[in-house]
Nucleic acid binder design. Sequence first.
DNA 1: GGAGCATACCTAGACTTCGAGGTATCTCGG
DNA 2: CCGAGATACCTCGAAGTCTAGGTATGCTCC
Lengths: 180, 180
Amino acid sequence: MLDLAILGFLYDERLHGYDLRKRIAALTGHVRPIADGTLYPLLKRMEAGGLLTRELEPGQIAAPRHMLSLTAAGRTALLDRLRDPDELYITDENRWFVLLAFLRHLADPPAQAAVLRRRLHFLTQPASFFWDGDRPLRAADFDDHFRQGLFAIATATTRTELKWLRETLVTLSGAGTDQA
Amino acid sequence: MLDLAILGFLYDERLHGYDLRKRIAALTGHVRPIADGTLYPLLKRMEAGGLLTRELEPGQIAAPRHMLSLTAAGRTALLDRLRDPDELYITDENRWFVLLAFLRHLADPPAQAAVLRRRLHFLTQPASFFWDGDRPLRAADFDDHFRQGLFAIATATTRTELKWLRETLVTLSGAGTDQA
DNA sequence: GGAGCATACCTAGACTTCGAGGTATCTCGG
DNA sequence: CCGAGATACCTCGAAGTCTAGGTATGCTCC
């Protein structure tokens, strides 16, 4: 998930690690930013894997910076990840939201395909949190305030996403200018 | 996070692993249920740690079942976890939602404290996804449909939770019947 | 001029969860 | 009676992330 975010942010910008770290924290809404010990070793691995390159710069505020940019392989890797159906079938919901943040880098048809897959997931998966067998649950079915809150939050999130998915499919359908 | 969910579900019920697995999947809304290879070894570790015990039962549908129940230490562990301020400061948002699902096991005053901490987090953390410096962002600030969707979903989720937090604090304040 | 703080990067070990396999039991259809 | 499928549990190695330490630079305030 982290590597997807890194590829996404570097796709059209040149950033250094410290900056990247702040942007990732903002994107994922994490309470604490991701740990240094997570980000920097990953950047090294990605560099070793030929996905990005770094240039040392003097550093405008304090210590010298390692400015990072994607290689051609790195840009291809992002586009492949964005198109990959497996990115949806992941335990961590954050994964899909990170993907959403960078789906703009894909041309309409493959982006539409990703949105369609996501919608299909909602329609076919029972989403068992919201159902008791065939009966849709209501907040009143929970006898404590806490699960009622959890239910309200989950419902709001799902409803908003479904609404957006519907609108998006209408917008995207027909407008096919294949680039990626 | 998984162990918190296990403690929560077993607090007032006796379940076997397979059932637990389905409930956890439903609770966290994970696309794929958690892997067997994750759950069963964890259950063994928790048993070795004295948090739960198992009894073998013949199995009503198929293979024999290992019925699990919490020990006194296990129940104490859950209450401690629910009260632990650190459970909020975790990168994974799921953590807080799992906690919310079982907060009913706490008496009012400590539950209220957890809710207060969560609200404080929203009010003090810049929540940088929603702000450009001091200016609140709007959907129109994003020039692609995908980030607009992401923004809409994040906004709906946050707004719903903040509304619930406000209501809950009104409900809980004053009603102090200390049990846990 | 030195203490404190933000910037900027790094290492090593540990923990959690995943992925890909495997075994055994029971029911039901053919 | 045998194969398919759901139930129910298990092992082992790999991947991803965290925790807890560390180094070095430049600014600001006293």
